[in-house]
Amino acid sequence: MKSPHEHNQDIQRQVEKRLQEMDDQIHAIDAPFYQTQKHQPEPSQKPWLKKLILGGKFFGLAVATLVAVRVASALAGIVIFGALVFLVYKLFLESKFKKP
């Protein structure tokens, strides 16, 4: 009959042996190794195409800016005109309509 200490050591050895077997099984299958490479973009055969696209973007941005400025100017004119009409009404015409 084994003592409890010997029994525990025996169980520990069996556990370690089983863990080692499992580790060997896990690492027995070698995963394929693929060498990674940094992506190298292919040299463009049409460098003028990139310049054309960049020019088109710039032209579109310029047109959009011009349209935005014109719209903002028109809205500002409408607001200023409306404010002047309101001011003239309040100063000169409102008192004439309330007298009678």
Score class of each variant (00 low, 15 high):
residue 2 K to E: 06
residue 3 S to I: 03
residue 3 S to D: 06
residue 3 S to Y: 03
residue 3 S to W: 04
residue 4 P to L: 07
residue 4 P to N: 00
residue 5 H to W: 02
residue 5 H to Y: 09
residue 6 E to A: 09
residue 7 H to T: 10
residue 7 H to K: 05
residue 7 H to A: 13
residue 9 Q to K: 15
residue 10 D to S: 13
residue 10 D to E: 15
residue 11 I to V: 14
residue 11 I to L: 10
residue 12 Q to L: 15
residue 12 Q to S: 14
residue 13 R to Q: 11
residue 13 R to G: 02
residue 14 Q to H: 09
residue 14 Q to I: 03
residue 15 V to P: 05
residue 16 E to F: 13
residue 16 E to L: 14
residue 16 E to K: 14
residue 17 K to F: 13
residue 17 K to I: 04
residue 18 R to Q: 15
residue 19 L to G: 12
residue 19 L to P: 00
residue 19 L to H: 13
residue 20 Q to A: 15
residue 20 Q to R: 14
residue 22 M to Y: 07
residue 22 M to V: 10
residue 23 D to R: 14
residue 23 D to T: 12
residue 23 D to F: 04
residue 24 D to M: 09
residue 25 Q to R: 08
residue 25 Q to M: 14
residue 25 Q to V: 04
residue 28 A to Y: 07
residue 28 A to Q: 07
residue 30 D to S: 01
residue 30 D to I: 00
residue 30 D to T: 02
residue 31 A to T: 08
residue 32 P to H: 01
residue 32 P to D: 02
residue 33 F to Y: 04
residue 33 F to S: 03
residue 33 F to I: 06
residue 34 Y to F: 14
residue 34 Y to T: 05
residue 35 Q to H: 11
residue 35 Q to D: 13
residue 38 K to P: 04
residue 38 K to R: 10
residue 40 Q to Y: 06
residue 40 Q to M: 13
residue 40 Q to G: 04
residue 41 P to R: 09
residue 41 P to F: 03
residue 41 P to I: 12
residue 42 E to T: 10
residue 42 E to F: 05
residue 42 E to K: 14
residue 43 P to Q: 15
residue 43 P to D: 07
residue 43 P to G: 07
residue 43 P to I: 13
residue 43 P to R: 11
residue 45 Q to D: 15
residue 45 Q to M: 11
residue 46 K to A: 07
residue 47 P to H: 02
residue 47 P to R: 02
residue 48 W to M: 10
residue 49 L to S: 08
residue 50 K to C: 05
residue 50 K to D: 08
residue 50 K to G: 09
residue 50 K to P: 01
residue 50 K to S: 13
residue 51 K to G: 12
residue 51 K to T: 11
residue 53 I to M: 10
residue 53 I to D: 07
residue 53 I to C: 05
residue 54 L to A: 15
residue 56 G to P: 01
residue 56 G to I: 01
residue 57 K to R: 10
residue 57 K to A: 06
residue 58 F to S: 09
residue 58 F to D: 11
residue 58 F to N: 11
residue 58 F to C: 12
residue 60 G to R: 05
residue 64 A to E: 02
residue 64 A to T: 06
residue 65 T to D: 01
residue 66 L to Y: 03
residue 67 V to Q: 02
residue 67 V to D: 00
residue 68 A to D: 03
residue 68 A to H: 11
residue 68 A to Y: 01
residue 69 V to Q: 02
residue 69 V to C: 08
residue 69 V to E: 00
residue 70 R to W: 11
residue 70 R to G: 07
residue 71 V to W: 02
residue 72 A to E: 07
residue 72 A to P: 00
residue 73 S to N: 10
residue 73 S to W: 08
residue 74 A to E: 09
residue 74 A to H: 13
residue 75 L to R: 03
residue 75 L to F: 06
residue 75 L to V: 06
residue 75 L to P: 03
residue 76 A to H: 14
residue 76 A to R: 15
residue 76 A to D: 07
residue 77 G to I: 00
residue 77 G to Q: 02
residue 77 G to A: 12
residue 79 V to C: 12
residue 80 I to Y: 12
residue 81 F to V: 06
residue 82 G to C: 05
residue 84 L to M: 11
residue 84 L to R: 06
residue 86 F to H: 09
residue 87 L to E: 04
residue 87 L to N: 11
residue 88 V to A: 08
residue 89 Y to N: 09
residue 91 L to G: 03
residue 91 L to D: 07
residue 93 L to Q: 03
residue 94 E to R: 09
residue 94 E to C: 02
residue 95 S to I: 10
residue 96 K to A: 01
residue 96 K to S: 12
residue 96 K to E: 10
residue 98 K to W: 01
residue 99 K to C: 09
residue 99 K to E: 08
residue 100 P to I: 08
residue 100 P to Y: 12
residue 100 P to K: 02
